[in-house]
Amino acid sequence: MTPTTPAAAPPPAAPDRAYGYADLPALMSLMTGDEKHGPAATSTLDALWVLYDRVLRVSPDRAGDPGRDRFLLSKGHGPMAYYAVLAAKGFLPAGLLPGFGSYGSPLGHHPDRTLVPGAEIGSGSLGHGLPLAVGTALGLRARGLSGPRVWVLVGDAELDEGSNHEAIAFAGATGLDRLHTLVIDNSSASHALPGGVAAPFAAAGWSVAAVDGRDHEALYDAYTRPHPGRPHAVVARVEPKHA
């Protein structure tokens, strides 16, 4: 079943002003409190911004459009960068950010699709997002919707989970060319993958690109690289988590 934005989600509000990439650190600084998972959040910041600013065909007024692109955040812990980007793009008001993680706030330590405008899935339990993205791509194909693209962001440590390898193998074998996986590689995996993070994708027949996860032009080039008949994986390398 293809996840959709539920009717119960609060309506998006127009941002009080236009925000750009330079505003993201200030937006993130509004989110205080414990259990922020700061390194997990900042590792995704550039990759998320380029995706939402230049690639994804989705906006607050298209949040329920069947023809929209879908973005699934599998790396759901440390969602501050995700919330900051959603606020910058008008999916939610910046005034919600200071309440991050507090009682009654829609912005939890893991995103909730019933509370956060623009969120396609509830996430936080690692290893679920990529299989859900495969199911989403299959659902769109079954409905005859060939336009929407499916993007899922995972962390390199998530690839320790066996469910991801089953999803990678299935997607490659079935030629899910509307499926895109963005892997944030901050060297946090407990078990190094033979051949590196990109190896399982390449072995399963995916198109693969590995880039500097802080280089916006390199990210954009990797995101938009043609990959007819095959799913596409972008491995974005950033500084190690412990650095």
Rank of each mutant, 00 (worst) to 15 (best):
T2D: 05
P3F: 08
T5C: 15
P6L: 08
A7W: 06
A8K: 15
A13V: 10
R17N: 11
A18V: 14
Y19L: 12
G20E: 06
Y21H: 09
A22C: 08
L24G: 01
A26N: 15
A26F: 14
L27R: 03
L27Y: 06
L30W: 10
D34K: 08
E35Y: 11
H37K: 09
G38S: 07
P39T: 02
P39A: 03
A40H: 01
T42F: 05
S43P: 07
T44N: 09
L45W: 02
L45C: 12
L45S: 05
D46S: 13
D46L: 03
A47V: 06
V50H: 01
Y52A: 13
R57I: 15
V58A: 10
P60H: 14
R62C: 12
D65I: 05
P66W: 15
R68H: 12
D69H: 06
L73D: 00
G76T: 02
H77P: 01
G78I: 00
M80D: 00
Y82F: 14
A84E: 01
A84V: 03
A88L: 14
K89W: 10
L92Y: 08
P93L: 13
A94H: 04
G95F: 08
L96D: 04
G99R: 02
S102A: 12
Y103I: 10
G108E: 04
H109V: 06
D112M: 11
R113C: 07
T114E: 11
T114R: 09
P117D: 05
A119E: 01
G122C: 11
S123H: 02
S123G: 14
G127P: 04
P131Q: 10
P131W: 05
V134H: 01
T136H: 04
T136P: 02
L138K: 13
R141L: 11
R143M: 15
R143L: 10
G144Q: 04
G144L: 11
S146H: 04
G147S: 04
P148G: 12
R149T: 07
R149D: 13
G155I: 02
D156K: 02
D156W: 01
H165Q: 06
A167K: 01
F170A: 06
T174Q: 13
G175S: 14
G175A: 12
D177N: 05
L182S: 13
L182K: 03
S188M: 08
S188H: 09
H191E: 13
H191M: 15
A192K: 14
L193D: 15
G195D: 13
G195W: 08
G195P: 07
G196Q: 03
G196F: 01
G196S: 07
G196V: 03
V197W: 01
A198L: 13
A198F: 15
A199L: 14
P200L: 05
P200A: 06
F201C: 08
A204C: 07
G205D: 06
G205E: 08
W206V: 07
S207D: 08
A209E: 06
A209I: 02
D212R: 10
G213A: 08
R214M: 07
D215A: 14
E217D: 09
Y220M: 07
Y220V: 04
T224E: 09
T224F: 02
T224L: 09
P226A: 14
H227Y: 04
P228V: 04
P228N: 05
P231T: 08
V235R: 00
A236T: 13
P240M: 07
K241H: 14
K241T: 13
H242N: 11
